[in-house]
């Protein structure tokens, strides 16, 4: 049945005027920034802004010749994938425990895990800086991996927990009467059944890890462990001023994979972003 909702209510031109205006507002700065990445440096900061620049791949060449861009990319990828892996290994059993067992303190434990999401990075930044310094991990990808995993663990656990709560208990009960152990049920029934949830959690964790800034800034203080996010902030090359075209290109380099995975999990995105609170 074609519902009333689909055919809409008030005048359509108002709807499309408002949505169209907002779409423009979203897209224009992004496209303009892309044009910054594809113009020569001399046309970026000028007495009069230049709206139709000459096309140039200067920044692209500079990126690979003047900076160890490949290394930054490698660092980002290693730290991000490593952290997501740590998160999944820790979060899946934890979420299973929170979603499927009744025991004393369960809700408090669940809330504790969630509450770490609220912790401002700045609050714990100083002790963590010393912790990693004493462990000799400053300026390493390992430190970044560990910290990204910690930052995202709450989110990953809660998303997966939400998907586990959706699985009918009967599914497990029949397996249990067949004599399967709890761990086998988790591995062979639950995990395959919530694969979309696990993928969603991994994607959200990946995006947050790419975005992470303050910890990365503190832990990666030399180019040895720079990731894309912090490398950006350091394209401010002293006497050269801020090298905007390189920044713009790096921004798009990081944007493309995020865009692709978000399109892939679109249906689960709002659920993931609310840690499972919205079943959209």
């Amino acid at each position: 049945m074609a519902s009333i909702r689909r055919t809409g209510g008030e005048k359509l031109w108002i709807r499309y005027l408002i949505l169209g205006a907002w779409a423009l507002f979203c897209i224009t700065p992004a496209l303009w920034f892309l044009s910054i990445g594809l113009r020569p440096r001399t046309e970026i900061i000028t007495p009069q802004p230049i709206y139709w620049p000459t096309f140039s791949l200067d920044a692209w060449h500079m990126l690979w010749s003047d900076w160890p861009m490949a290394k930054y990319l490698r660092n980002s990828v290693a730290a991000i994938f490593g952290s997501v892996l740590i998160d999944l290994v820790l979060a899946i059993p934890a979420a299973y425990s929170l979603a499927r067992y009744e025991y004393r303190g369960r809700d408090d434990i669940g809330f504790y895990i969630l509450s770490t999401r609220m912790m401002a990075p700045a609050i714990v930044a100083i002790p963590i800086f010393f912790l990693f310094r004493n462990a000799g991990l400053l300026d390493t990808v390992w430190a970044l991996m560990l910290i990204y995993a910690a930052v995202n663990l709450s989110v990953v656990t809660w998303i997966i927990r939400s998907y586990m709560l959706d699985i009918p208990k009967e599914l497990e009960d029949s397996a249990r009467t067949d004599g399967a152990s709890d761990l086998r049920i988790l591995w062979e029934i639950i995990i395959p059944a919530i694969r979309p949830g696990i993928i969603t959690a991994a994607v959200i964790a990946m995006i947050f890890a790419i975005n992470e800034f303050l910890f990365t800034l503190l832990i990666a203080s030399t180019p040895k462990a720079y990731t894309m996010s912090v490398a950006l902030a350091n394209f401010t090359g002293g006497s050269d001023g801020v090298i905007y075209n390189a920044i713009a290109l790096v921004a798009f380099l990081a944007f493309i994979p995020v865009f692709i995975v978000v399109v892939a999990i679109q249906k689960h995105l709002s659920r993931g972003l609310t840690l499972g609170a919205v079943k959209g």
């Binding site: 907002w22 779409a23 975005n211 996010s229 950006l232 920044i247 713009a248 921004a251 865009f259």
Partner: peptide, 15 residues
């Protein structure tokens, strides 16, 4: 509508 959200916050700051 999601495009702005998909940039790194540090990149948005530079925009």
């Amino acid at each position: 509508f999601l495009v702005p959200m998909l940039f790194m916050p540090s990149a948005v700051a530079f925009i």
